[in-house]
Design a protein around this nucleic acid. Sequence first.
DNA 1: GCCAACGTTGGC
DNA 2: GCCAACGTTGGC
Length: 154
Amino acid sequence: MAQHWLMKSEPDEVSIDDLAAAPRQTVPWTGVRNYQARNFMRDQMRPGDDVLFYHSSCPEPGIAGIAKVAGGVAPDETQFDPTSPYFDPKSTRDKPRWLQIDVTLARKTRLLPLKEMRAAPSLATMRVLQPGNRLSITPVTGAEWQAVLALLGR
DNA sequence: GCCAACGTTGGC
DNA sequence: GCCAACGTTGGC
Protein backbone atom coordinates (compact mmCIF):
# COMPACT_ATOMS: atom_id res chain seq x y z
CA MET A 1 0.00 0.00 0.00
CA ALA A 2 1.24 3.43 -0.85
CA GLN A 3 2.46 5.59 1.97
CA HIS A 4 2.11 9.33 2.31
CA TRP A 5 4.75 11.97 2.91
CA LEU A 6 5.19 15.68 3.27
CA MET A 7 8.28 17.16 1.63
CA LYS A 8 9.44 20.70 2.28
CA SER A 9 10.97 22.79 -0.45
CA GLU A 10 11.98 26.40 -0.47
CA PRO A 11 10.17 27.89 -3.46
CA ASP A 12 13.25 30.04 -4.15
CA GLU A 13 15.00 26.77 -4.96
CA VAL A 14 12.26 24.49 -6.28
CA SER A 15 8.67 25.70 -6.28
CA ILE A 16 5.58 23.79 -7.37
CA ASP A 17 5.75 25.75 -10.64
CA ASP A 18 9.37 24.71 -11.12
CA LEU A 19 8.26 21.12 -10.67
CA ALA A 20 5.48 21.63 -13.22
CA ALA A 21 7.98 23.08 -15.68
CA ALA A 22 10.63 20.40 -15.19
CA PRO A 23 11.26 17.76 -17.84
CA ARG A 24 8.63 15.03 -17.36
CA GLN A 25 7.49 17.18 -14.40
CA THR A 26 10.06 15.33 -12.33
CA VAL A 27 12.95 16.57 -10.21
CA PRO A 28 15.63 14.81 -8.18
CA TRP A 29 15.09 15.76 -4.55
CA THR A 30 18.56 16.96 -3.62
CA GLY A 31 19.99 18.77 -0.63
CA VAL A 32 18.62 16.61 2.17
CA ARG A 33 21.30 16.74 4.87
CA ASN A 34 19.53 15.10 7.75
CA TYR A 35 20.00 11.43 8.52
CA GLN A 36 16.43 10.74 9.53
CA ALA A 37 15.09 12.24 6.31
CA ARG A 38 17.74 10.39 4.30
CA ASN A 39 16.72 7.13 5.92
CA PHE A 40 13.11 7.70 4.90
CA MET A 41 14.29 7.90 1.29
CA ARG A 42 16.53 4.88 1.67
CA ASP A 43 14.28 2.59 3.70
CA GLN A 44 10.67 3.59 3.38
CA MET A 45 9.79 5.73 0.38
CA ARG A 46 8.62 3.74 -2.62
CA PRO A 47 7.59 4.61 -6.16
CA GLY A 48 3.95 5.59 -6.18
CA ASP A 49 3.94 6.96 -2.64
CA ASP A 50 1.93 10.16 -2.31
CA VAL A 51 3.62 13.45 -1.45
CA LEU A 52 2.37 16.75 -0.12
CA PHE A 53 4.59 19.39 -1.70
CA TYR A 54 5.17 22.06 0.94
CA HIS A 55 6.63 25.54 0.46
CA SER A 56 8.81 26.57 3.40
CA SER A 57 10.89 29.61 4.35
CA CYS A 58 8.83 31.93 2.20
CA PRO A 59 6.18 34.64 2.59
CA GLU A 60 3.32 32.14 2.39
CA PRO A 61 4.35 28.75 3.76
CA GLY A 62 1.94 25.91 3.10
CA ILE A 63 1.00 22.99 0.89
CA ALA A 64 1.22 23.98 -2.76
CA GLY A 65 0.52 20.73 -4.58
CA ILE A 66 0.45 16.98 -4.72
CA ALA A 67 3.26 14.86 -6.05
CA LYS A 68 4.39 11.28 -6.17
CA VAL A 69 7.57 9.44 -5.42
CA ALA A 70 8.94 8.29 -8.77
CA GLY A 71 11.82 6.20 -7.44
CA GLY A 72 15.34 6.76 -8.61
CA VAL A 73 17.05 6.60 -5.23
CA ALA A 74 20.69 7.44 -5.90
CA PRO A 75 23.60 9.31 -4.37
CA ASP A 76 22.80 13.02 -4.19
CA GLU A 77 25.03 14.53 -6.87
CA THR A 78 25.25 17.89 -5.10
CA GLN A 79 27.33 16.40 -2.27
CA PHE A 80 30.24 15.91 -4.70
CA ASP A 81 30.10 19.40 -6.21
CA PRO A 82 32.46 21.85 -4.49
CA THR A 83 30.51 24.76 -5.99
CA SER A 84 27.22 23.58 -4.54
CA PRO A 85 25.91 24.90 -1.24
CA TYR A 86 25.13 21.26 -0.49
CA PHE A 87 28.74 20.14 -1.01
CA ASP A 88 29.89 17.73 1.69
CA PRO A 89 33.68 17.41 1.86
CA LYS A 90 33.34 14.28 3.97
CA SER A 91 31.40 12.43 1.32
CA THR A 92 33.10 10.38 -1.37
CA ARG A 93 31.90 8.58 -4.49
CA ASP A 94 32.93 5.32 -2.83
CA LYS A 95 31.04 6.12 0.32
CA PRO A 96 28.33 8.64 -0.48
CA ARG A 97 26.60 9.98 2.57
CA TRP A 98 23.48 11.57 1.07
CA LEU A 99 20.71 10.36 -1.20
CA GLN A 100 18.26 11.86 -3.64
CA ILE A 101 14.94 10.51 -4.89
CA ASP A 102 12.87 11.47 -7.93
CA VAL A 103 9.60 13.29 -7.30
CA THR A 104 6.99 13.89 -9.99
CA LEU A 105 4.05 16.28 -10.05
CA ALA A 106 0.56 14.88 -9.64
CA ARG A 107 -1.25 18.21 -9.58
CA LYS A 108 -0.88 21.74 -8.40
CA THR A 109 -3.47 22.67 -5.79
CA ARG A 110 -4.59 25.88 -4.19
CA LEU A 111 -2.17 26.95 -1.51
CA LEU A 112 -3.19 25.49 1.84
CA PRO A 113 -1.52 27.98 4.15
CA LEU A 114 0.31 26.86 7.27
CA LYS A 115 -2.06 29.06 9.25
CA GLU A 116 -5.04 27.10 7.95
CA MET A 117 -3.29 23.81 8.63
CA ARG A 118 -2.67 24.83 12.24
CA ALA A 119 -6.30 25.85 12.62
CA ALA A 120 -7.62 22.48 11.40
CA PRO A 121 -8.31 20.01 14.25
CA SER A 122 -8.08 17.15 11.73
CA LEU A 123 -4.42 18.01 11.12
CA ALA A 124 -3.41 18.48 14.75
CA THR A 125 -1.40 15.25 14.74
CA MET A 126 0.63 16.07 11.64
CA ARG A 127 4.31 15.62 12.30
CA VAL A 128 5.25 18.75 10.41
CA LEU A 129 3.06 20.81 12.73
CA GLN A 130 4.57 19.54 15.94
CA PRO A 131 6.55 22.12 17.91
CA GLY A 132 10.23 22.09 17.08
CA ASN A 133 9.88 19.86 14.07
CA ARG A 134 12.61 20.53 11.55
CA LEU A 135 12.52 17.43 9.40
CA SER A 136 12.24 18.23 5.71
CA ILE A 137 10.56 14.89 4.99
CA THR A 138 7.86 13.66 7.35
CA PRO A 139 5.42 10.74 7.20
CA VAL A 140 1.72 11.57 6.82
CA THR A 141 -0.97 9.16 8.00
CA GLY A 142 -3.84 8.07 5.78
CA ALA A 143 -6.27 10.03 7.93
CA GLU A 144 -4.14 13.16 7.71
CA TRP A 145 -3.84 12.73 3.95
CA GLN A 146 -7.62 12.52 3.58
CA ALA A 147 -8.05 15.54 5.84
CA VAL A 148 -5.64 17.59 3.72
CA LEU A 149 -7.52 16.60 0.54
CA ALA A 150 -10.78 17.64 2.19
CA LEU A 151 -9.35 21.04 3.12
CA LEU A 152 -7.88 21.51 -0.34
CA GLY A 153 -11.26 20.75 -1.89
CA ARG A 154 -12.95 23.57 -0.08
C1' DG B 1 16.71 40.15 11.04
C1' DC B 2 15.39 37.66 15.25
C1' DC B 3 15.42 33.76 17.89
C1' DA B 4 13.91 29.21 19.70
C1' DA B 5 14.56 24.56 18.83
C1' DC B 6 17.15 21.13 17.27
C1' DG B 7 21.10 18.22 15.11
C1' DT B 8 25.97 17.72 14.59
C1' DT B 9 30.69 18.18 15.87
C1' DG B 10 34.71 17.42 18.35
C1' DG B 11 37.52 17.80 22.59
C1' DC B 12 38.02 15.40 26.55
C1' DG C 1 30.29 8.38 25.56
C1' DC C 2 29.39 13.02 27.42
C1' DC C 3 28.19 17.53 26.51
C1' DA C 4 29.23 22.42 25.32
C1' DA C 5 29.66 24.99 21.31
C1' DC C 6 28.25 25.79 17.03
C1' DG C 7 25.46 25.85 12.73
C1' DT C 8 20.93 25.37 10.66
C1' DT C 9 15.99 25.59 10.21
C1' DG C 10 12.02 28.09 9.53
C1' DG C 11 8.13 30.86 11.19
C1' DC C 12 7.40 35.36 12.39
